[in-house]
Computed example of a mutant assay.
Amino acid sequence: MSTIHIGVCGWGDHYDLYTQGVRNRDKLSVYAGHFPIVEVDSSFYAILPQRNYETWVRETPDRFGFIVKPFQAMTGHQRGSAPVDRREVFRQFEESIQPLVEAGKLKALLFQFPPWFDCTRENVQYVQACRQELSAYPFAVEFRHRSWFQEKFRERTLDFLRKIEATHVLCDEPQAGDGSVPIVVGVAHPRLALVRFHGRNHAGWRDPGEGQKWRDVRYLYRYSEEELAEWVPRIRQIETEADEVCILFNNNSGGDAVHNAKQFADMLGVQASGLNPRQMELF
């Protein structure tokens, strides 16, 4: 049986973890008293200075793990922007994450490709190129265009990820057209399986509504116990195929991610160890 780790995406907005008056700079330390892994989203918006990662290494226990999203120019999210020197951007990003690498706390690089990144020969070649640029690091791929998992391509996509030694990211999300993917239970890399829960806000997935920020609406969802129960046999299946299973809750908009993460941990009988002592929070 594999090791299962459960956490959430980011650590700044989960206010039910923090007592009133906890400073922003202390939130990661408090978070690490509850969960053994976290997804870093700020790295998607900018290539961060090494000092950020150095600080995060100091604030977390030895066995804590970071799943880092690469800069958006690396995953094709910046449509219409001026061309960038890909090799230089990859070099800068690789240099920035070295404190995590040296501390043994880099769990994976999460390449989440945009909803318009469909299954074409050109895009397959681009994923291969990304993998080659960062061949020294654990590499996870989340596709967001349905074409990768159409029946005729599903097994070929998983085989492709196996060939480049990449983790297949399983997703729970609304089924809302081409810009969403179905649940595909399968392990592409024997070392690590990664599952991300985005919520099931079907109405807000594609259209947040007038005057609304898409991120505030898209991930506004609380899973029911029945919905989480659907995933228990899936997790039991993939944990027989991977040494480690990391599960991340991204339904952050309404503060539901922490609740659902702890609820799911209880359902799976997962008890995290090696956490920070809980001396700064309410419970």
Rank of each mutant, 00 (worst) to 15 (best):
R200G: 08
V187W: 01
I183R: 15
G209I: 06
F197Q: 02
Q128C: 11
H145G: 12
I164V: 09
G104Y: 07
K152V: 14
F90M: 12
C171F: 04
D118R: 15
G186K: 08
E173N: 03
G199M: 07
C130F: 09
V127Y: 07
V127D: 04
P182W: 01
D207V: 12
F153K: 13
G209Y: 04
H189T: 00
F139I: 10
R196D: 11
Q175T: 08
L109S: 06
F139R: 05
F111R: 02
T120H: 05
Y126F: 14
L194C: 05
G179H: 12
L109Y: 04
R154S: 07
H198D: 07
E95T: 13
V195C: 04
L106G: 01
L110H: 14
V184Q: 03
F93G: 09
F93E: 06
D172W: 07
K213F: 11
F153L: 15
R154M: 10
C171H: 05
Q92G: 11
Q125V: 08
E155A: 09
A203N: 11
E165L: 08
P182G: 03
P208I: 09
E165P: 07
P182R: 00
V184M: 00
A136P: 05
G177R: 03
A136G: 14
P182N: 01
H202M: 01
R218M: 11
H168W: 07
D207W: 05
Q128L: 14
F113S: 03
G104V: 07
F149K: 02
Q132F: 00
N123F: 11
V195P: 04
R91A: 15
P138L: 07
E122Q: 15
W116E: 14
T167F: 05
G204Y: 03
W205I: 02
V184N: 00
A188W: 01
G177S: 05
N201A: 07
Q212I: 09
F139T: 08
Q128Y: 10
I183D: 09
P114D: 05
C171L: 12
K107P: 09
C130N: 10
L194S: 01
A176L: 00
R206I: 11
F113L: 15
L100S: 04
D172A: 03
H189V: 00
R154Q: 11
R218P: 00
Q112W: 10
R131W: 10
G211E: 01
Q92F: 10
Y126G: 06
I97Q: 01
D178A: 13
G104C: 07
R196K: 10
D118T: 15
P208N: 06
E142N: 03
V141S: 06
K107M: 11
V181R: 03
R206P: 00
Q128I: 13
G204E: 03
E210C: 09
H145W: 10
C119D: 13
R191W: 00
A140C: 10
L192C: 04
Y137C: 12
V187D: 02
H145C: 12
Q125M: 11
E165S: 15
P138Q: 06
W116R: 13
Q175G: 08
R200E: 03
A103Y: 01
H198L: 08
A140S: 14
N201Y: 06
V101I: 10
E155C: 00
V101K: 00
V169A: 05
R196V: 12
L161V: 04
S180V: 06
H168E: 02
